[in-house]
Design a binder for these strands. Structure first.
Lengths: 183, 183
DNA sequence: TTTATTTTAGTACCAGCTACTAACTGAAGT
DNA sequence: ACTTCAGTTAGTAGCTGGTACTAAAATAAA
C-alpha cells in the first residue's frame, strides 16, 4: 500500500508542475507534505529537471516560436495576387497545429488559410465572410506544405463568390466556396 | 573620449542581450573584453536584471499567453455534453481575435469554436471534419460572449451529421452543418 | 524478527549572481 | 608635478536553488 502512496505523490507532482513549472522544490515539499529530499528523489525518478532548467526550457521553447502563432503564420504567406481574380498562398504546417492523437492538422488552420486568402483576393476595403461551403478531402499531416489557390468566380453587387482549393503536392486536400460581403 | 567608450560598450551590451538574453556575465565580460565587475556595473546602470531573471521573464511572458492561444481559448469552454446528442460551449471574444480595421471577430475563431464543439459531441475516438457548410449571419464584435449549441441530427455508419448554432445573447450570429467522419 | 523499501537529515559543493569595500588606472585640471 | 576623479578591477561575504553523496530513521514486507 505504501507503493501506491509514492506513485500517487509522483502523479500529483507531475500534475503540479504541468500546470505551473515555476515551482521550487521547497514549495513542492510543502504542497505534498514530504521533505525536500523526497521531492528530489521523486524528480530524479521521474527525470524532471530542476526549477532553473524548467524555466529555461519554457523560455527557449517559446522564445523564437510564439510570435508566429497569433497572427501571420496561421494564415500563410501570400505569393501571388491579382485583385478580384486570383491569388496563391502557402502555409507550412507543423506539429503545433495537429491533434496529438492522430497527427492530423486541425480543420480551423486550413479554414483560416482559405478564409484569409478569400479576403485578400477581393478588392474591397472591408469584407466579412457570409457563407462558406467546405470539403476536407484528405487529412493533412504535420509538416506538409499547403498551397492555396483562390479564384473569384462572380461579383454581384457587394457579394463576391470565391473558390479556394488547397493542395499538398499535386493532390487536392481541401476545396471550398466562399461568399464574402463587402461592408 | 573615455566617456564614449563606456557608452559604446553599454550599447553593445544591450545589443547582445536583445539578440540573446541567455548570456552570463562571464560570457559578456569575455565578449566585451572587460572584467565581470564592469559588466555588473553596466547592467546596474542600465537596469538590466541578472541572467536568471531575464530567462524567467522570457518564460513568463510567453507561458501564459501561448497556453491560451494555442488551445482552450480558441475553441471555448465546454458547458454541457450529451454524447451523440447535444453539447454547449461558450467563448469570450477579445480584441486579439478581431480585424483591427473593423473590430469584427475573424471567421476562423468562430469556425474553430464550431468545429471543436462538433468534434466534442460525437462519441468517436478520433474524427475528422469532412464537409462543412457555414453561414455567418451577423458580424461578432470583440467582447461579445458566444454561446454555441451542437445537435447531432443523424448518424450514418461512420458519418455524423452535426448542426452548430452560435448566439450572442438571443441573436443567432452563425449557423453551420458539419459532416464528421470517424476514423 | 529480519530484511527491504521509503523517507528524512545533513554535509560539501556548484552556478550565477547581489552587495559591499577597497584598490588601481589614466587622463584632465590647475 | 601633484591632485582629482570617473572608470575599472579585485576580492570577500552571502544568497537561491539546486546536485551529489552518505547515513540514519521510519515503515512495510518476508
Amino acid at each position: 500500500m505504501r507503493k501506491s502512496i509514492k506513485l500517487l505523490r509522483q502523479e500529483r507532482l507531475i500534475d503540479i508542475l504541468e500546470k505551473d513549472p515555476f515551482v521550487t522544490d521547497d514549495s513542492l515539499s510543502e504542497q505534498l507534505n514530504v521533505s525536500i529530499q523526497t521531492i528530489r528523489l521523486d524528480r530524479m525518478a521521474l527525470g524532471i529537471p530542476e526549477l532553473r532548467k524548467r524555466i529555461k526550457d519554457v523560455a527557449k521553447n517559446n522564445y523564437d516560436r510564439v510570435k508566429t502563432i497569433s497572427q501571420s503564420e496561421i494564415v500563410g504567406e501570400l505569393l501571388d495576387l491579382e485583385l478580384n481574380d486570383r491569388a496563391i498562398s502557402i502555409l507550412d504546417t507543423d506539429d503545433t497545429m495537429v491533434f496529438k492523437k492522430t497527427q492530423i492538422v486541425k480543420g480551423h488552420y486550413i479554414f483560416a488559410m482559405a478564409e484569409s486568402l478569400a479576403l485578400a483576393v477581393i478588392d474591397a476595403d472591408v469584407a466579412i465572410t457570409g457563407i462558406a461551403n467546405l470539403k476536407y478531402k484528405i487529412p493533412v499531416k504535420a509538416g506538409e506544405k499547403l498551397v492555396a489557390k483562390a479564384k473569384v468566380k462572380q461579383i454581384k453587387e457587394m457579394e463576391y463568390y470565391v473558390h479556394i482549393f488547397i493542395n499538398v503536392q499535386d493532390e487536392q486536400v481541401f476545396r471550398s466556396k466562399f461568399i464574402m460581403k463587402a461592408v
